[in-house]
Design a protein around this nucleic acid. Sequence first.
DNA 1: AAAGACTGTCGGCCACCACCGAAACGTCGC
DNA 2: GCGACGTTTCGGTGGTGGCCGACAGTCTTT
Lengths: 248, 248
Amino acid sequence: MHTATADAPALAQLATLLADTTRARICLALLDGRAWTAGELARTAGVAPSTASDHLSRLVEGGLLVQERQGRHRYLRLADPGVAQLIEDLAGRVSAPAPPARSLRAARAGAALAYARTCYDHLAGRLGVLVHDALLRGGLLDRAGGLALTPAGIAWCADLGLPVVQLRSARRPLLRDCLDWTERRPHLSGALGAALCDRLFELGWLARGAGRAVRLTPAGGPALAAALDLASDDLAPPAAPDTGGGRA
Amino acid sequence: MHTATADAPALAQLATLLADTTRARICLALLDGRAWTAGELARTAGVAPSTASDHLSRLVEGGLLVQERQGRHRYLRLADPGVAQLIEDLAGRVSAPAPPARSLRAARAGAALAYARTCYDHLAGRLGVLVHDALLRGGLLDRAGGLALTPAGIAWCADLGLPVVQLRSARRPLLRDCLDWTERRPHLSGALGAALCDRLFELGWLARGAGRAVRLTPAGGPALAAALDLASDDLAPPAAPDTGGGRA
DNA sequence: AAAGACTGTCGGCCACCACCGAAACGTCGC
DNA sequence: GCGACGTTTCGGTGGTGGCCGACAGTCTTT
């Protein structure tokens, strides 16, 4: 007599989708929030296109991915923020062993990624943490009784064009901590985190770099700093190292 | 060239632990937050003791479970609230298809479970949702800018013997929504949700029933209702359907 | 229309793993 | 001490699933 409060086979089936290195690689790649083609994912995962095709079909069928066919391409992306959250949570439990930079190019790419990147649909990296900290210091965000915007914070969002009331949804929390695995500190996720990131792109303050990396635009840096009541320098990426001096 | 932002093999390895029906059953059983013996888990999962022993060792080695040996018994429980959250999140993605009650006894047990139960370390079921709603209605909890206690809510917690400041931790959010799969509505999880549940047991307002089910004690019902500014009836379980059977 | 690119299907190979029963180990009780 | 009980270890077995190469389909390009 199995109590079977929840459907164990279904849970196992869902976990199975992530229980394969190749599928895990695919899902991690898709964590950038964009749509990839099947071929790109196959190359990234290091398997034959036919193998990847199989995996992708299973992931779609399992509800983790959604696809969109355009001509001879098959675009795939994570099904919804919940899937991204799930993968993040799982990845967060495995101690990421501080990837050592192998080459100068890799080190530079790594630095860009550590500075600012997208974490599915919100801002992460050092910039993400800085924004979080600035909001907290400015009294726009409050952690005394949980994690919430203050009335001032709600007004701040409205000024930026973020309608907080409309972002409230039963399906997704407005705010959520997302642990940064480079900074080891929280940044903002949730519906608002995603909307804020969207809006920064929309305003042209933020632009995509290579891969998951993003960067502040020349106009966006000062603008965001002003909005957060910071000096421009506070948001600047670490000074480009001419040689090895990795700034702490 | 694999970008390998995170360790895909490690993620897959972690997911593999949950990617088996038997291990999933074990983990779901342990969601009640208590420590089970290896034999109990074997019977619950419906496998031979030797099979379960193997699974349990793997789960412990993988960091999902912790064990404690006492004499000829091996007690196992979930390693930490994060694991419980992970399993909840996974289980929450698979639509639990409203288990039909097969017998009168099963229906009664199901009703008790739907009314109040523990969800690893916090209160769930109808009672959990009622508490959440009462806190919200009473202005102790606020959802305007996220999910947070109001100053009044912090005071209310203090009155109850819950030191909110000490509960704030980097490792675990103070408050968190946990979707109830019977009520389909949020109840309180997180560090505070766990502390509140603990305290209710400590005060003798809440007592354990069969399995994961809990019940309000005769003294606890009115006390909790008063604390939440509710009529006693508002917290009452659904009227017991009076068939002829002798009530235990 | 033909050539090329992206993707899906099929068959086969191989490795992994969940399961069990039997037996060994340790603890508890008489 | 002896037996009972809970647990673990150890082969052995069967099923599942990841992987590839080859071929077929579909869309784009020349």
